[in-house]
């Protein structure tokens, strides 16, 4: 860090100016690397793949549509990671939520379906949060276990069969519809990002999440109830993931245990690419959106470029490592 610039006496003339300059020099480009990355990758594909339809309106909307669900999950994940915890169960929570929504909806109607989906998030989030904050079990282990449990339940209660959703209202609200020219998925994504960004940056709850992640002892000594904060972020993350499960259900017009499988890793990648510290204490929801978009852009571009799945995976992995390496704090 800027140790050499700021070891001087407090109040010494010029010291603050030096500190401030040092801060700009160190933070400036690293904090914004993800924005730069999105622009650079976009321009790169625009030049290279402009002829293959990369710049067509349809393709650009597609990129957003494909990243929307991951982005919603990643907004919740931002809180968890900023609080120095992790939630590996989000993908299977989304899957279980999609099946529960579909099953309740076909029997009791649309309201019951939505409530069933949210209930999945509430129940699993409470269990995750309770085990982590009350019993002090590391969230990595709790949610790793929950990943298996939720996925297993989803597969078991459906006998591995997809659960079709025939309710058009549900399908159009949760993913298939459009408002004017804008796909509704993008609206959902926008709402989650906007609310998530304001709460994290501008409310006492958000500030206490960052404080708990940055130095739990200090937060405790300052009067932050860090147990409650940890419980709340894990609950919030699960509920958000259950909404994402309904977005899968609406877009694909069915509930299925595979929906969301593996999303935890994409969401974590988006969060970290977006500048949220894996060690907690710093986080940005807008950054997370950018991280998700970067991944979406790369996926889309590589497909248009005609690379096969194996090559896509390799290149995606390389870009993620490169971006995180460049964005890391010293």
């Amino acid at each position: 860090m800027t140790q050499s610039a700021t070891t001087g006496a407090p109040g010494a003339p010029g010291q603050n100016a030096v500190a401030r300059r040092g801060r700009l020099a160190t933070l400036d480009w690293r904090r914004y690397i993800i924005y730069i990355g999105v622009v650079v990758v976009f321009l790169f594909f625009a030049v290279l793949l402009g002829d293959q339809g990369f710049l067509s309106k349809n393709n650009l909307l597609n990129i957003f549509r494909q990243t929307a669900t991951i982005t919603v999950i990643a907004v919740g994940m931002t809180y968890v990671i900023a609080c120095a915890e992790i939630d590996l169960s989000v993908g299977s929570v989304a899957g279980l939520s999609s099946v529960c929504t579909a099953m309740a909806l076909s029997r009791y109607g649309i309201a019951a379906g939505i409530l069933a989906g949210l209930a999945v998030g509430l129940v699993i989030g409470s269990i995750n949060g309770g085990l982590v904050s009350m019993l002090g079990i590391p969230s990595f282990l709790v949610t790793l276990g929950m990943l298996g449990i939720a996925a297993g339940i989803a597969q078991w209660i459906t006998n591995s069969a997809p659960q079709p959703i025939l309710n058009d209202t549900f399908n159009s609200i949760f993913g298939s519809g459009n408002i004017g020219p804008v796909p509704i998925l993008i609206i959902w994504m926008g709402i989650f990002v906007a609310i998530g960004a304001v709460i994290l940056a501008k409310t006492r709850f958000g500030r206490q999440v960052l404080a708990t992640g940055g130095n739990r002892t200090a937060a405790d000594f300052t009067g932050v109830n860090t147990k409650r904060i940890k419980f709340q972020v894990l609950l919030l993350c699960s509920v958000v993931a259950s909404v994402a499960g309904m977005l899968y259900a609406g877009r694909l017009q069915s509930g299925r245990f595979q929906w969301g499988a593996g999303d935890e890793l994409s969401a974590i990648a988006a969060v970290i690419l977006g500048g949220t510290s894996l060690f907690g204490g710093a986080g940005s929801v807008v950054g997370t959106l950018m991280g998700a978009l970067l991944i979406g852009l790369i996926n889309n571009g590589l497909i248009l470029a005609g690379l096969d799945t194996s090559q896509q995976q390799i290149i995606r992995g390389l870009i993620i490592i490169l971006a995180v390496a460049m964005a890391r704090r010293k």
Binding site: A211, G214, N215, T217, A219, T222, G280, G281
Partner: peptide, 16 residues
């Protein structure tokens, strides 16, 4: 020290 290193000076002073 009971400060959160990732927050600013003012954010630490008025935490909670």
């Amino acid at each position: 020290f009971s400060l959160v290193p990732t927050l600013t000076v003012a954010q630490n002073i008025y935490l909670t």
